[in-house]
């Protein structure tokens, strides 16, 4: 009963949007080129499913996101941990990080194309740049925000710095790390689409841009739906994986 209650309002919300869309098209308020009808978009989607082109684009974009996100997570984790073990090193790199945090990754595309070409490296770097910072900030917050009283307990039992990190700091930072990962995953998707629109011949971003050039608004809308759905799906998938590892939902900041 409870589960049903949760889904009913969500479905009503979605249905309302579709109804409005359908009504606007039916009343002929916009040209069908500006806003294709839901039926047309659905038919295009089915066609793309049949030819398999949409799956290829999803797989390519998904692979890029995973690679960039994985590298960004490792970097963020290692640098944040470094900061915990060597607090005095912080001023040497913290200002640089804060500087680059405020530079939109997409603004680096011209330089990255020059330096790394239009191959996979450029796209990976863009995703890393987009997803590194939110994750880094959250992980640092998690590590540095560890309850001093718990750290004293570790100290009172003569814990080494490494043991304190593994047994106290890391577990207490898990909720913050998870929130950072979740935010960053969303950023990764946004960045990959931008990158693929500028410098790619495959992927969902390219698919949308190509459809625009071919005046296929229906394909553009299909692309938008696919990106939203896949992004939502990966978010849930990450949530599911995390639930397997740390259990519970309320405490790890995932719902």
């Amino acid at each position: 009963m409870k589960k049903k209650n949760k889904w009913v309002p969500a479905l009503i919300g979605i249905a309302a949007i579709f109804a409005a869309w359908y009504f606007v098209c039916w009343a002929g308020i916009f040209n069908s080129y500006v806003l294709p009808s839901p039926q047309k978009v659905w038919a295009t989607f089915l066609k793309m499913l049949k030819t398999g082109e949409v799956f290829r684009d999803i797989a390519i974009s998904f692979g890029r996101v995973l690679r960039g996100f994985g590298i960004a997570f490792l970097l963020a984790f290692v640098i944040a941990a470094f900061r915990i073990f060597f607090p005095k090193s912080e001023p040497y790199y913290e200002y640089l990080i804060q500087f680059f945090r405020n530079v939109p990754p997409l603004s680096l595309i011209p330089l990255l194309i020059l330096w790394c070409g239009i191959g996979e490296t450029t796209k990976t770097v863009i995703i890393v740049l987009a997803s590194f910072f939110p994750m880094y900030l959250s992980i640092v917050k998690g590590f540095t925000g560890c309850d001093r009283k718990l750290l004293e307990v570790a100290r009172s039992f003569s814990y080494s710095p490494m043991r304190t990190f593994v047994r106290v700091i890391l577990p207490s930072a898990v909720p913050d790390i998870l929130v950072g990962m979740r935010t960053s995953l969303g950023y990764s998707w946004r960045a990959i689409i931008g990158a693929e629109m500028v410098a790619a011949s495959t992927g969902l971003g390219h698919m949308i841009l190509f459809a625009q050039q071919m005046s296929r608004t229906d394909k553009v809308i299909v692309g938008i739906f696919v990106i939203g759905t896949v992004g939502y799906g990966t978010d849930r998938l990450l949530g599911l994986l995390i639930r397997c590892f740390v259990g519970g939902t309320a405490q790890n900041g995932w719902n």
């Binding site: 009283k149 004293e152 307990v153 039992f157 207490s172």
Partner: peptide
């Protein structure tokens, strides 16, 4: 070999009772 008992319990919230007891 010293041990400290604080004013507050200061247990690790992510560990169960047994793991907390074996924490030291």
């Amino acid at each position: 070999k010293t041990a400290f008992v604080f004013q507050e319990p200061r247990l690790m919230p992510w560990l169960n009772v047994r793991d907390n007891i074996e924490f030291g």
